[in-house]
Design a protein around this nucleic acid. Sequence first.
DNA 1: CGTTCAGTTGACTAAGGTCAATTCCCGTGG
DNA 2: CCACGGGAATTGACCTTAGTCAACTGAACG
Lengths: 191, 191
Amino acid sequence: MDLLIQAIRNYIPFSSADEATAQKLFHRKEYKKGGHLLTAGETCRYVVFIESGLVRYYITKDGEDQTAYFNKEGEFVCDYPSFLPQKPSKVSIQALEDCVVWLISYDGLQQFYKEVEYGERFGRLGIEEVFVNVATQVASIYTDTPELRYKNFLHNYPAIVQRVPQYYIASYVGVKPQSLSRIRKRLSRTH
Amino acid sequence: MDLLIQAIRNYIPFSSADEATAQKLFHRKEYKKGGHLLTAGETCRYVVFIESGLVRYYITKDGEDQTAYFNKEGEFVCDYPSFLPQKPSKVSIQALEDCVVWLISYDGLQQFYKEVEYGERFGRLGIEEVFVNVATQVASIYTDTPELRYKNFLHNYPAIVQRVPQYYIASYVGVKPQSLSRIRKRLSRTH
DNA sequence: CGTTCAGTTGACTAAGGTCAATTCCCGTGG
DNA sequence: CCACGGGAATTGACCTTAGTCAACTGAACG
């Protein structure tokens, strides 16, 4: 739980009374590699803090996966479009490694907002940060070629590159595994 | 200002004292068609509520525009990735029609959060909503073909279709104007 | 009437998708 | 220790679709 408290303290002042509240509202859980934190069709009931491990957040369309994000230890993950209005999710979240996580339920989070002095601010700052990431993502998909997106991925997430199969990276970049393979070939030749 | 107050009341209880606070913190401004609310390179200093008119939010890359969103009367618009951390923006926001807007500055918004009872909640709910839109956008760009994106645009924003030139829609869909023209041709033939 | 600019159309190119075969890697079991 | 099996990654041949360059049409406006 230390890593979680520390993550919260990155955003707001957090007293020991607040810590007790967090102790009460967050629950520890483990997932095996390959297990699902959320399956499309379910309603996303928790915001998840990843203490250790790695997950991917993916959209299924016509029977195929599109991995939209990766999240690793020290980060929060959640399908907000399902969680916030508490309606069924269109996406899935899967553990790519064994994971230890801390869950807070929707109601628990509302309670957190009330009981923790800067709780509302935490909620706002947290979502603001996620938002900026997503907005950056949109800009990148719009304006960058797959090749550039792959190079940026290597540059921005060197830690993750080593930890996930290439076909997940391909879908993150927005191409088929075959095409990513060709892009890699082009890059290795030109440079 | 009525439309603004009404928009806020969609999110939170809003007393007449709060209305006075809003009166103090929001400033009216007008933009001519073609004018810029924000130019790439500037820091986005305001959250803008559109009382009337229509704007586009676009990214410039290699000298070309990519329109990522449209916003119309009754909606808020802002480049959060610039506004929240108060650093230079990579995007521009342009009036596509004459606009009447209400501005609130970064400091003004912090004050709003403090002085308005449910201010923090308003900030959180507001950004949550924008966030869900952007997340939907990401999913769509990842998984939908340009043709489907165009059909969805027609379906989701029938009001806007009539009000903007086709080449802005093309860039929103993610293709060149020539390609959108061909997509339209395909669609008119098949159906 | 001519200028301008959005929109369309044509010919050709480039790049990713598709289908299929092959190679590589790694772990398992004989 | 080696052979095998299975999934990941690569490669090849061909297809589809958007990009590019350029010409042309059409409507708006002075």
